[in-house]
Amino acid sequence: MSFKSLVTFIVLGLIQILLLKNLALFGIAFCFLYLISILNFPTAIPTIPLLLISFILGLTIDVFYETIGIHALSATFLAFLRPFWLKALSPSGGYDDTSNPTIAEMGIGWYISYAWPLVFCFCLLFFSADQWGTGRFLNALNKSFFSSTFTVLLAIIVQLIFFKRRRDI
């Protein structure tokens, strides 16, 4: 992980904690922008470090959200699903060793089909765990749908604005 991606990692975490924590569009669309940093790790990253990083990141966010464990649970789940989903979506020639699953390299259409289902799974687990025992699964489904859409939308915007397109090779 280069220095630049470490900075991105920390900045996204801070934005999540400081700004997006209190944001919920119409009370149902939450934004989990920090998931970008998990989604955008290079495709070649081994799963074990990815799982550990996601768990620690989720736990850090949890501490500020006062939802101890829930983010960690869902983020680990997302990190676990990611390699399988990447394999399913792999282009005909396979991935390069250095390629990143970002908009800049793969394009918007591919990115949506990559990110949205993963974020949706994250949200589904998150809201199910959040509302566990209340028996309002439909509500969780509703929130998951809108939250994942909102998150992916914001993730695309953020990447288009702030993440430079790589110009080499």
Binding site: L52, E66, G69, A72, T76
Partner: peptide, 27 residues
């Protein structure tokens, strides 16, 4: 590893919902 991490997370969630649990990890 995935399973063990998820178990830790669930343990934290459950522990945090009991009054004495996980007092360190809160605000």
């Amino acid at each position: 590893l995935f399973i063990s991490l998820e178990v830790i997370a669930i343990w934290l969630i459950v522990g945090n919902n009991s009054p004495q649990g996980a007092a360190f990890f809160n605000s």
